[in-house]
Each structure stands twice: as C-alpha cells, then as structure tokens.
C-alpha cells in the first residue's frame, strides 16, 4: 500500500520532473538555450498554446475531448482576417473571431449534450467540417495581415508583452472560476461521475455546454494571439494544435479520465514545457520533420503516465472489508 501511494505521489509530480529534465537537457545540449532572451521568447511563444490548452483543460476535466480545436482556431482567425481586409476595425474583427469560436464550440456542445454523440466523434467531425469551411472561406489562399496586427502582438503594457498578458488574464480568470465558483467545483464533480453529479442536483448538461463553448472561445483567442505573432493565415493554420493542447494539458497533470487537473499552474506549465521542447528542437537545428514525431512521443508518454496513475488510484480505491482493528476493540 505504502509503495503504491508513493508511486501515485511521484506520478502526480511527473510534469515537474519532466520539466526539470527537459530544461537541463536542452541547457546542456545548446548554449543559447538558457539565455534570458530565449526564455522570454519561449514564454511569448507559449501564450497561444497556453490559451488554447486552457479551454482543452476544461473539456478534459469533464472527461471529454475537443479534437476540433485547431480547426476552430483556423476558422475564427480566417473570419477576423477577412474582416480586417475589408477595413473593419481591429476591435470588431477580434470580437467576431471570438464569437465564431464560441459559436462553433456551442455547436460541439449541442452534438454532445443534446444528441449525446460521443465527444471524440462529434469533435472529429467538426475538425473536418470546420477546416473544410475555412478553406472554402479563404479560397485556400494565405492572407497576410496588416501591420497593426503584428504591432499589437509586439506591444508591451506595463512592460509585459500583450500575448503574455492575454495568457495570464485568461488562464488566471479560468483558474479562478474553476477554484472559486460553484460552476468550477461542480465541473470537477461531474468529471468524476456524471451520474452521481446529476443525482446530487448538479445541472450537468448546462455545465458541459458552457465548457465546450468556452473551449471554442479559447481556441479562437489562442488563434488570434498566434496570428499577432505570425501575421499571416495559411491554409494549415492551427492544424494539429488540438494535439499540442491535449499534450500541454496532460503534461500539466490534467487527467484524460476527468475530474483532475488545474489550468494554473498545471496546464500553463505544460504549455511552456511543450513550447520549450519545440524551441529546443529549433535551437538545436533539428530536422523540422522530426517535430510531429517528438510531439507524439511526448503525448504518448504523458497519456501513458496518466493511464498508469489512474489504474493505480483505482486499485487503491478498491473497497476494503476488513477494517484495521484498533486498540479500543473489545
């Protein structure tokens, strides 16, 4: 029993251990890795993923998944790009992108909550449908954004770059909602056992619906932040970011089995870790074709650890009949 509990404790800390390991490895392998400038870059680069992964964390906490995140990112950003081209103001196009993301997320929620389609199938269909729509909408052409977009990305407020502010704002707010509102606490309950949660009087469907909608909104916001850094919408924009988001969340200690994980520090740490690995690969001049393989190995390991942890915990929870005898008996 003792050994098992120690294993659980270790597994709970696996993301921190990984983090230290990755930092040290790259620090030793590449001199320019541990410079202040590079660390700053990593933070800025992580912000888009961090925001998207925040939404993914909410979904994973309910034991669901959103595979359409990358496609929603693409559609939302394409819509705002089109608006900017047609001389709408920056504010309106940002708002429109968020609205589109939210709406597509709601559509996911509709399929999952109302029609009870398994989450991964519903969002897999959305992955294809939304990307098809986006490609049609952009005529498969890359759009270069006006300079004001990239300027926004490079702006500093109170000495902090705007992308980082956005990340801190969204992740902080979400974490506050998770920790300090009935919605958040009930979310954790329903992730463990939706039926028990329903019996306890929690409005499970409503919460699920908001979760998928917010995830869509976060995807859009993550897309906007990425756009403010790259300044262009290509037809592959956001492609496979859902995997990165799942990886960030799971690396940060969120369980695929629901009910366990945090946005801050968990997912944010996971996103930074993920970006650090990509950054390290760039600095080491690794073959860019290697990235997807490295990423999938990371996801695999993270999910494997999560699975092992889950089964160990389930074994610990097995009902015990024989109660430890204590001194007071007879």
């Amino acid at each position: 029993m003792e050994a098992r509990e120690t294993i659980v404790k270790l597994l709970n800390q696996s993301s921190l251990i990984l983090f230290a390991f990755v930092f040290l490895t790259f620090g030793i392998l590449a001199d320019s890795f541990l410079t202040l400038q590079n660390v700053r870059n990593i933070l800025i680069q992580s912000s888009s993923l961090g925001i998207a992964a925040t939404g993914m964390t909410l979904v994973l906490l309910t034991a669901g998944v959103d595979l359409s995140l990358g496609s929603i990112m693409f559609v939302a950003v394409a819509v705002s790009g089109k608006l900017l081209f047609n001389d709408y103001s920056l504010a309106i196009s940002i708002f429109a992108a968020l609205a589109v993301g939210f709406l597509l997320g709601m559509l996911n929620g509709l399929m999952i909550v109302r029609f009870r389609i398994v989450a991964f199938i519903a969002t897999l269909a959305m992955l294809f449908a939304a990307r098809g729509f986006g490609l049609w909408f952009t005529n498969t052409r890359a759009m270069n954004m006006p300079d004001e977009v990239t300027q926004l990305g490079a702006t500093h407020l109170l000495g902090v770059p705007v992308p980082i502010l956005a990340l801190v704002g969204i992740a902080g707010l979400t974490q506050a909602f998770l920790a300090f509102t009935p919605w958040g606490r009930q979310l954790y309950a329903l992730g463990v056992d939706p039926n028990a949660a329903r019996k306890a009087g929690i409005r499970v469907d409503l919460i699920l619906w908001t979760v998928y909608s917010v995830c869509g909104g976060c995807a859009a916001m993550g897309g906007l932040v990425a756009l403010s850094q790259t300044g262009a919408v290509s037809p592959s924009f956001g492609s496979q970011r859902e995997f990165a988001a799942i990886a960030a969340a799971v690396l940060g200690g969120t369980s695929l089995f629901g009910g366990r994980g945090t946005v801050f520090p968990g997912t944010i740490l996971g996103a930074i870790l993920f970006q650090t690995i990509e950054n390290g690969l760039v600095i080491m001049n690794a073959d860019p074709y290697l990235y997807p393989m490295v990423v999938s190995i990371i996801i695999f390991l993270a999910v494997l650890l999560d699975t092992v942890r889950n089964s160990v915990v389930n074994q610990l929870r097995r009902r015990h009949i024989r109660v430890q005898l204590d001194a007071s008996q007879d």
């Binding site: 606490r185 009930q186 954790y188 309950a189 949660a197 306890a200 929690i202």
Partner: peptide, 17 residues
C-alpha cells in the same frame, strides 16, 4: 456519495454553495 477530488466543505455544499 462523495466526490473524492473535492474537499469536505465542497462536498457538503456541492448543490447550493
């Protein structure tokens, strides 16, 4: 019928915080 991932207070007040 308790949720193991929540604390004592949250379990008590789950439906009416």
């Amino acid at each position: 019928n308790l949720f193991p991932n929540l604390n004592v207070a949250e379990n008590i007040f789950l439906a009416d915080f």
